[in-house]
């Protein structure tokens, strides 16, 4: 590197970078004939890896700020936005996941401390704990996703069964679903099932389903009837009445009738985008931890652990804002 810098003529202007960047080196070598011992002076009092990690994190700040900012702006500009229980969000599960990520932030810090103290075995244990906690977070997230999917809440249209309001379009979607050949067969099977082999919930559910089927095909139906149908399929109210989680889609999971969640589609788009990008970051973190576990985690590798830790804390940081914004707002 230095040799090439010397070989370039001084102030040639041929390559501005070389002479400028190594001007000090070249001069030192020229004058002292290689006897001057040169010292690398970093421009900032931190290692290059850490500098790059912080630069990367500052771009990440803007990336997630854009996502979170658009979420907040979309949410508060929306004419209707679902409450957490409308979209089957469980606050206790979200709080548990927050706790898991906080724990993993502590374990990675402890791994770094252990590595700096040259206790490589201990560092490895903490690193493994971080990896497991991160995996637990993803597992809980996957469980939450499956709960959304099972209620027909998808961020893309052919699979999503979310309708914005109980209007004519919703009514025709329910009619279309009930008119599918396979559905007709299943409904006939349900009708023919003797009372005894059904649970109490299923018996009332079957009765409600029969009423909905007549209501939805009634040419004289009132606009309010569609709201009643939507409420029977998936109630919005959390307490009182028949309560949440006892809609027809819950009693008979194979029904998969379209459901009405005002603002639900925009909610699904933002929720899956935000948590999805966060989950991708978690996956990357887990890959990094797995790679780090292959090394001897002592003082020499503590720089790598520190950089991985910085990244992981940032992932934790994003979740700190995501949790209240998504689950509690």
């Amino acid at each position: 590197m230095t040799a090439s810098a010397i070989s370039l003529p001084h102030g040639d202007g041929h390559d501005h970078h070389g002479p400028d960047a190594h001007g000090h080196d070249a001069h030192g070598h020229g004058a002292g004939h290689g006897h001057v011992h040169l010292q690398y002076q970093p421009g900032l009092p931190l290692s290059r890896g850490k500098l790059i990690m912080w630069l990367f994190l500052s771009t990440e700040i803007m990336f997630f700020a854009a996502l979170l900012g658009s979420y907040v702006v979309l949410r508060f500009g929306a004419p209707a936005w679902p409450l957490p229980h409308h979209v089957h969000l469980s606050e206790p599960i979200g709080a548990f996941n927050t706790f898991v990520l906080i724990c993993s932030s502590v374990t990675i810090v402890l791994a770094l401390e252990a590595a700096r103290a040259n206790k490589s075995e201990l560092a490895k244990i903490w690193m493994l704990a971080t990896l497991l906690l991160g995996t637990l977070f993803l597992g809980v997230k996957a469980y939450e996703y499956s709960a959304k999917f099972s209620h027909g809440i998808y961020p893309w249209s052919p699979r999503s069964r979310v309708y914005e309001k109980p209007d004519l379009y919703y009514g025709s979607a329910v009619r279309a679903r009930l008119g599918e050949p396979a559905m007709i067969d299943q409904l006939k099977t349900l009708d023919d099932t003797p009372e005894g082999s059904l649970s109490a919930e299923q018996r009332t559910g079957r009765e409600r389903l029969r009423q909905i089927r007549t209501m939805i095909t009634n040419p004289d139906q009132q606009p309010f009837d569609l709201a009643v149908v939507a409420d029977q399929v998936m109630p919005l109210a959390s307490g009182g009445g028949h309560g949440h989680g006892s809609g027809l889609n819950d009693v008979f999971p194979w029904l998969r009738l379209p459901a009405v969640i005002p603002g639900g589609n925009m909610w699904a788009s933002t929720y899956f985008l935000l948590t999805g990008f966060h989950a991708i970051h978690v996956v990357v973190g887990l890959i990094v931890f797995t790679i780090l576990l292959l090394y001897k985690l002592d003082r020499r590798t503590s720089g790598m652990i520190e950089n991985a830790g910085l990244y992981w804390h940032f992932v934790d940081l994003v979740w700190i804002f995501l949790f209240p914004l998504l689950y509690l707002f």
């Binding site: 309001k165 009643v228 919005l236 028949h242 005002p262």
Partner: peptide, 20 residues
């Protein structure tokens, strides 16, 4: 065609009324 807060109220009302 956009969802309104009134749609939420309508659904809640429907929940209180129940099936005819």
């Amino acid at each position: 065609y956009m969802p309104r807060q009134s749609d939420v109220r309508l659904m809640e009302q429907a929940g209180e009324t129940g099936l005819p």
